[in-house]
Nucleic acid binder design. Sequence first.
DNA 1: AATTCGTGGGT
DNA 2: TACCCAAGAAT
Length: 340
Amino acid sequence: MEIWSEQTIKDFQRTLLDWYDKDGRANLPWRLNHEPYRVLVSEIMLQQTQVDTVLPYYERFMAILPTVQDLAQAPEEQVLKLWEGLGYYSRARNLQKAAQYITNDLNGHWPESADDLQALPGVGPYTSAAIASISFGEVVPAVDGNAYRVFSRLLKIDDDIANTKARKVFYDAILPIVDPLRPGDFNQAIMDLGSSYMTAKNPDSQGSPVRAFNAAFRDGVELSYPVKTKKKKPVKQQYMAIVSEKQGNLLFEHRPDKGLLAGFWTFPLVEINSIDEINGQQLNIKPIIHVFTHRRWEIWLVRQQLKPSENQQYLSSDDWQKLSLPTIQHKLLKALGELE
DNA sequence: AATTCGTGGGT
DNA sequence: TACCCAAGAAT
């Protein structure tokens, strides 16, 4: 691992921020100003989600819920509807809880340090540092996936970033490099660098503005960084999605309030162990496939009249179109429409 | 510490 | 295709 002198650190800061001022993504809507609410919403949406995916969600969300008080007072179903299709839905629920905590318990006064910001639900080590540096000028590194990748290459850090222990290694390595006068811009510049020149695949380290500081590139081993152990394959699960129709209404099932797609409505899903268990149905068609991070669902639509159980309910199209439905349910509804 | 949380895009 | 990746946090 490389150790930089104080002079190298100063040169790096100036090189990075000069580039950021010239070629950074200044037009991103959450960079319009540094109001903590705008930054908080953007950072939560951007967790494990690409910028291009977030953009339309962010614009719509801020237009409808422009202040932390608006979010605190909104019906949860409205917040979830604004989040529909974005995934990781606990983010939306936690975001509203954070807004309610700030509005009701702190009388609208924001925590200003990374340590205090971590008291907000859904705000962890990265997000707290991002808000603290961008909105309040605290000199802390916001260590996200970009920072792991960029600094693992610049400094040749060999720690496995899939390991929890790596977080402190990177934090300690980056902390003395953060620009003390512009910590928020420094952190965002690292992200811009990671999404442009220092990408995971096909990086352009030769053209990078900080190529002179890149030890892995210098040694011809940039693609060996970051060190990261592979994830497990998603487990296959097969389901029948029961289509039970009554007077034009469809039967929906409310999922448990914990676990995958918690609290969302889908067609009743019955897990099967082999396709052979389905008899007398038109199943010679391909299943609908939906892949989560850790599960792969294969689903066959099956028409069958059911008597609603306690967590099931017939809904008209006017009813279910108002709900926030997970993407798999939209896929099932689309497939059903194409059968008819 | 390892697992569990969605979804879409790229190769 | 099957895999990896993307501004992570909670448990």
